[in-house]
């Protein structure tokens, strides 16, 4: 197997709030290969965006801390980089597309100025060459009439076009890793289809590794080769896409897949929702964080955190149901039931 370009290992992130310490990310690990798309799925508050911001070192210093964990990019420890080196990493090696194309661009600068700023900072190009590159990038992401549009301000663009500008900016310096945090959530479905196609074709040309953060399992099915399912700050299940969709092992993943209506299903069976709401991360918890909502909860789940079990190559899940003892129980119960 190839050497991964980005590795996150046992990452913990804590926020200091008035209500005390909120442990938003609790031991997240994953790795990303070249030209691979890893999807991180989960509900709001599950820690997926915080993980992304930790990789980019974009978390506010005053109110957050990273008590444990490592982020390694090309052999460098990202968390220990001095500011100067961090600057050359951000944008040039690892870049990010944000969810809201309305607020992630500077409204007082033309998009050309914003693109050129990044390009000339990271790629020793003179102004004219940087400008030319900016025009090329806009053409690449499918903005018609790029020569002229480059002089326009963000408010001249529609939401879909702004997201294209955001992608052009993120890709301008040929990053090795692109983190896309809900890049299409604010867009209409027909525009979403355009943006996803664009990201895939660009990935094929440049070999960029993509971390795609989303809550839409349809988008995941379209884009990803690998999936990490997050719940309450932990990766509860991770594996190749076919494993997660067709052989999911964690009850939360089951719940996510079942609570979505199928467009191609006939009739209207009632949906099977996951009861309850995600836990409050400011509170101390014991055992499995999903236990209060889990239909298969056992006594052990409430007291002890489940270990990571490898189900098949690259497919792991954190659930007591996968423990040998639980499986024996199940078999015994099966015998007893006839």
């Amino acid at each position: 197997m190839n050497q991964p370009i980005l590795t996150v290992d046992g990452l913990h992130v804590a926020f200091h709030s008035q209500r005390g310490e909120v442990h938003a990310v609790r031991g997240v690990s994953f790795c990303l290969q070249k030209q691979e798309t890893l999807a991180i799925v989960g509900e709001s508050g599950s820690g997926k965006s915080v993980t992304a911001k930790a990789i980019m070192r974009l978390l506010p210093k005053q109110s957050t801390s990273i008590p444990a964990g490592q982020i390694t990019y090309a052999g460098q420890n990202v968390l220990a980089l001095p500011p100067r080196e961090l600057q050359s990493l951000r944008g040039a090696e690892i870049s990010m597309v944000f969810q809201d194309p309305m607020t992630s661009l500077n409204p007082t600068m033309t998009i050309g100025q914003q693109l050129v700023e990044g390009i000339s900072k990271h790629q020793r190009l003179d102004k004219a060459a940087a400008y030319e590159k900016a025009v090329n990038m806009l053409q690449l992401v499918g903005i018609p009439n790029a020569q002229e549009r480059i002089r326009a301000y963000p408010h001249h663009f529609s939401g879909g076009m702004r997201q294209r500008v955001g992608i052009a900016m993120a890709l301008a310096c040929d990053p090795k890793v692109l983190i896309a945090d809900e890049p299409t959530t604010a867009l209409d479905v027909t525009v979403q289809a355009q943006i996803l196609e664009l990201m895939k074709s660009l990935q094929q040309r440049t070999g960029t590794g993509i971390i795609l953060i989303t809550h839409d399992l349809g988008v995941v099915a379209n884009m990803a080769q690998k999936v990490a399912v997050m719940y309450a700050g932990e990766v509860v299940e991770t594996g190749p896409i076919a494993e997660i969709f067709y052989r999911p092992k964690h009850p939360y993943t089951w719940g996510l897949l079942r609570s979505m209506p199928r467009l191609d299903a006939a009739g209207t069976e009632p949906l099977i929702p996951i009861p309850g709401t995600p836990p409050d991360l400011a509170r101390q918890q014991q055992g499995c964080p999903f236990a209060p909502r889990c239909a298969h909860v056992m006594k052990v789940c409430k007291h002890f955190s489940p270990p990571l079990t490898e189900v098949s190559s690259g497919h792991t899940a954190k659930c007591w149901l996968l423990d040998q003892r639980a499986q024996q129980q199940e078999r015994l119960a099966g015998v007893a039931g006839g």
């Binding site: 479905v189 027909t190 979403q192 355009q194 196609e197 399992l217 349809g218 995941v220 099915a221 379209n222």
Partner: peptide, 18 residues
Amino acid sequence: AIPLPDPVQEQSRERIVL
């Protein structure tokens, strides 16, 4: 344009991109 939560179907289907 609606992505289906099924990787095999999703990655094989023809899509009309407006």
